[in-house]
Nucleic acid binder design. Structure first.
Length: 437
RNA sequence: GGCGCAUUAGUCAAACGGUUAAGACGCUGCCUUCUCAAGGCAGAGGCAGGGGUUCAACUCCCCUAUGCGCUACCA
């Protein structure tokens, strides 16, 4: 039997990270089997419909690289189909109308059980615990239960991959399939992703949209990799793996059935790993595109950093950033004049900051041009020796003088980027600042 | 309350009856070092509790506890 999976979100809000994992696993199952992965928009709840949600879902899946086959199916465009099927059940005595809605008549005898593809575990219910439920609402829209059964039967979805919050509804679905005389598909219920408050991550609880991770500077590869590992460990045990490697290794049986807490700290680490292993030239493009994408925000000030500036800075910041957005606070000082804070100078190990800075300025003026890191390092190590200070202390003083910060990318390289004239100017300004306070 | 699913360190997790109970993030210390990172090395930290079954239980069964989910003419 051909493997066909689908991701079936409801457009009641932007795609969130829990949905990303459901989509990813459905994608992996289909691609591994050479099957079909499609998208179905479950827009049957008019009250909770959110304008733009469908577009966000499609756009985000595309950004992540979870390409689906064919065109999305919109349930709201298939109302007649559901109505027709509800009528069939009424005709066969398996459903009835009440208050303008159609109710399914549940069979209270016996048990309903499935073997879930996740770990092949058996899930069982006493049918006596079930009760009749609505399949067609009085507004003419189907409920999830009817729509799921009809659609997944018609497109021959197998297996049905969805969140574990649906486990409780399994008896309803099984009975519906049987009432139609259809074959019951296999199911895989994925463990639920919880927020740090331990409650289900959902748009109802204001889960962060996946698109926001994009604007925060996360890479799609890192997000997919991280989400895959939430509930799944590849047989190889690899922690960093590409989408195609995941496709090769994936098996629903290996998915665990324990809810997992979404911890962004590890995602940040992983994003850093992906950034570090990206070629400089490629990283430059990613950063540039990222900054352009979100340039309506305040990250890019007065056109900085430009493409050339990014290129210079990439080797310096590559090991130091976890997200693409980190580049801005880390390199701001290269293009903008720093603001000084006397407290920062006070904390330095060098005693007479302004005096030492005067000597530094003197050296800078005499230093052979063009400056380079070797000349620079040699000059100031000598200076440190001559005034009986530690080289590190002198370097740190220079760092604060040119950046206003105690933490920056490597000093000498930063200085080369800032340029001879500007460095001297900033040094003098730092001296003036210190003398004024 | 009822029904269902689950329970290995702060977090993600491996283990599929026999291991000194992997690994990763985070944390701590050391090394490296112009700061911060990155990198290297070392370390702390765990099978929810109780009963069974078995020569042997993290692993199988039962009970309790706890967590989560569902309990809508929402998905």
């Amino acid at each position: 039997m051909k493997i066909k999976t689908r991701f079936a979100p409801s457009p009641t809000g932007a795609l969130h990270i829990g949905g990303v994992r459901t989509a990813l696993f459905a994608y992996l199952v289909a691609r591994k089997a050479g099957g079909v992965f499609s998208l179905r928009i479950e827009d049957t709840d008019r009250a909770r419909f959110v304008e733009g949600a469908t577009e966000d879902i499609i756009k985000t899946l595309k950004w992540l690289g979870l390409t689906f086959d064919g065109e999305p199916i919109y349930q709201s465009e298939r109302l007649d189909l559901y109505k027709e099927h509800a009528k069939k059940l009424i005709d066969s005595g398996k459903a009835y109308e009440k208050d303008g809605a159609v109710w399914f008549k549940i069979d209270l005898d016996g048990k309903t059980s499935i073997v879930d593809l996740v770990r092949n575990r058996k899930i069982e219910f006493e049918n006596s615990t079930q009760k009749d439920f609505v399949i067609l609402k009085s507004d003419g829209y189907p409920t999830y239960h009817l729509a799921h059964v009809v659609d997944d039967h018609l497109v021959e979805t197998n297996p049905v991959i969805r969140g574990a919050e649906w486990i409780s509804s399994v008896p309803k679905h099984i009975q519906l399939f049987k009432a139609f005389g259809w074959q019951v598909p296999q199911y895989a219920h994925l463990p639920i992703i919880l927020g740090t408050d331990r409650s289900k991550l959902s748009k109802r609880h204001g889960a962060k949209p996946a698109s926001e991770f994009r604007s925060d500077g996360f890479l799609p590869e890192a997000i997919l990799n991280f989400m895959a590992l939430l509930g799944w460990t590849p047989p190889s045990g690899k922690e960093i793996l590409s989408l195609s490697e995941m496709v090769q290794e994936f098996d629903l049986f290996d998915v665990n059935n324990t809810n997992a807490i979404f911890d962004i700290t590890k995602l940040e680490w992983m994003n850093g790993e992906y950034i570090r292993k990206t070629e400089n030239s490629n990283l430059k493009v990613k950063i540039r595109n990222y900054l352009m994408d979100i340039s309506d925000n305040t990250l890019v000030k007065e056109g900085h950093p430009s493409e050339e500036e990014i290129e210079k800075v990439v080797p310096l910041i590559k090991d130091r950033i976890k997200t693409l957005s980190d580049i801005v606070p880390l390199t701001d000082f290269l293009w903008e004049k720093p603001e000084y804070d006397k407290e920062i100078f006070k904390k330095l190990k060098v005693k007479n900051c302004s005096e030492t800075l005067l000597k530094i300025a003197e050296k800078l003026e005499k230093m052979e041009k063009p400056w380079n890191t070797e000349i620079f390092e040699k000059t100031f190590r000598e200076l440190a020796d001559s005034i009986g200070a530690k080289a590190g202390g002198v370097f740190q003083l220079i760092r604060v003088a040119i950046s206003g910060q105690t933490v920056t990318p490597p000093l000498f390289e930063s200085i080369e980027i800032i340029g001879e004239g500007e460095v001297l100017k900033r040094t003098k300004e730092a001296i003036e600042f210190l003398q004024a306070v």
